[in-house]
Simulated assay, not measured.
Amino acid sequence: MTTYLPSLLGGMLIGLSAAMLLLLNGRIAGISGIVGRLALGVGVAVNLAFVAGLVLGPLVFLAAFGHWPTVTISAIWPIIIVAGLLVGFGSRMGSGCTSGHGVLGLARLSPRSAAAVITFLTSGVVAVALLKGFGL
């Protein structure tokens, strides 16, 4: 159980922050939308506070657990860059990202979010299968 405790607590904090943003501001906690609005100068205070919370998360982890979170990335930089660009393009094309559709969209029983999450998961499975097939 202790192996999964940080992930469980992190998931609970994501859910709590998403619910608070929806209840207190009427906004969906989709990161692509929040960053997009911040870049356009819309709702700067709220959007900047949300993004700052994301960026400062590792510092809170350090204070709570006494060490930096362990992050292991086994892909090469070109794959990471292409993947990031594809995720960014896909989140704009799909009118949202995994956080907006997966965390709040599914909780609101949105059919569009259900379709988006099914697409995200299917695409991830296919991508992993292809990359493993090519030995990447």
Score class of each variant (00 low, 15 high):
residue 40 L to A: 15
residue 64 A to L: 15
residue 80 I to G: 02
residue 89 F to P: 00
residue 30 G to E: 03
residue 98 T to W: 00
residue 47 N to R: 09
residue 28 I to L: 10
residue 10 G to M: 00
residue 85 L to V: 10
residue 13 L to C: 08
residue 21 L to T: 11
residue 54 L to E: 03
residue 23 L to M: 12
residue 31 I to R: 08
residue 45 A to L: 09
residue 67 H to A: 13
residue 34 I to S: 13
residue 70 T to I: 11
residue 7 S to D: 11
residue 6 P to F: 01
residue 84 G to F: 04
residue 54 L to Y: 04
residue 52 A to E: 05
residue 92 R to G: 11
residue 34 I to W: 06
residue 51 V to K: 05
residue 100 G to V: 00
residue 93 M to A: 13
residue 115 A to Q: 09
residue 128 V to L: 14
residue 96 G to E: 01
residue 85 L to H: 01
residue 50 F to W: 06
residue 110 S to K: 00
residue 90 G to F: 06
residue 114 A to I: 08
residue 24 L to V: 15
residue 64 A to F: 02
residue 103 V to H: 05
residue 48 L to G: 11
residue 76 I to L: 15
residue 126 V to C: 10
residue 77 W to V: 12
residue 32 S to Y: 12
residue 58 P to V: 04
residue 46 V to C: 01
residue 1 M to T: 14
residue 80 I to T: 06
residue 106 L to M: 02
residue 112 R to C: 05
residue 34 I to Q: 07
residue 91 S to T: 14
residue 1 M to W: 15
residue 100 G to S: 08
residue 116 A to F: 06
residue 69 P to H: 02
residue 63 A to L: 14
residue 13 L to Q: 06
residue 104 L to G: 11
residue 38 L to Y: 00
residue 29 A to T: 00
residue 61 F to A: 08
residue 47 N to G: 01
residue 100 G to Q: 01
residue 125 V to W: 07
residue 91 S to I: 08
residue 78 P to L: 04
residue 35 V to I: 15
residue 65 F to N: 13
residue 123 S to G: 14
residue 102 G to Y: 03
residue 41 G to A: 07
residue 33 G to P: 00
residue 113 S to L: 07
residue 85 L to W: 12
residue 94 G to I: 07
residue 15 G to S: 08
residue 95 S to Q: 13
residue 135 G to D: 05
residue 41 G to P: 04
residue 106 L to Y: 02
residue 81 I to Y: 10
residue 70 T to Q: 14
residue 9 L to T: 03
residue 112 R to A: 13
residue 117 V to F: 10
residue 33 G to I: 00
residue 128 V to M: 11
residue 6 P to L: 02
residue 60 V to T: 09
residue 28 I to S: 09
residue 5 L to P: 01
residue 123 S to L: 13
residue 81 I to P: 07
